[in-house]
Amino acid sequence: MKYLAPTTIEGAVRLLSEASGSTRILAGGTDTIVQLNAEQIEPDLIVDIKRIGEIRGITNENGGFRIGAAVSCAEMTEHDGVRDLWPGCVEAAGLIGSTQVQGRATIAGNLCNGSPAADSVPAMVAAGAVVRIIGTDGSRDVAVEKIPVGPGKTSIGADEFVHSIFLPPRPERSGDAYLRFIPRTEMDIAVVGVGINLTMDASGVCTAARVALGAVAETVLLVEEAGDTLIGTHIDDAALDNLARAVSAACKPINDKRGTVEFRTRVAGVLAKRVAKIAAERARG
């Protein structure tokens, strides 16, 4: 195994394109090094992207924020601008692992790890975040929900890596939120995660809503039918009940050591109602 830490985007692209064996991108390392230590992966090359200055920061772009792939969750949660614009995404990022993990983990890594239970991903999907991917053929921008294709699998090519994630600007009277269910108060993987992003008009009627679910299917799900239950409503109790039903109906979970099909389906609906209330509260200001 080789470890290399290029300092430029071009240098990283070159390494990836020239690599012959298996390669791993190292950002925060909070998944990759766990897997290395457990001998679950034995890559031939590790490319540490944290020395590439261009992806180490958060930049304001057209009223939204571009979050570099090497930005840690701690840096993100400490950023007032991002927190004010996308509080749900920031909360989701802030839930990944311990304080120690927060100082290292990145939302790009959380996405690329491909876990259906990744905390930041439902929030980013609900937010309509866009991922910038760099490779031999240049860069491309992809909706975040297009990245995961299965447990541990993404649509990112072997010669590509995530450059940044763009959290877009948003209309007035918008709010987002994310909650997950875990058995303890911290340190667990989400048994269910729900991210909701919505916008209201001046009269308090919901005009747009995106609902994304984690840990209830092979990948994070964007559930349009669930968003539709909120649109045109004041997000009252009846709408919330419809939301819960639509969310539970969309769940395709499995039984595993963390939860049962029955539990995940039921709790996804419960959480969706709670998340929608918080998001609505935020939209109302």
Partner: peptide, 16 residues
Amino acid sequence: MLGDRVVSSCLVLGAE
């Protein structure tokens, strides 16, 4: 402490 962040040193490579 790695710089100004507390980290788990089991999840940092020596090379980093």
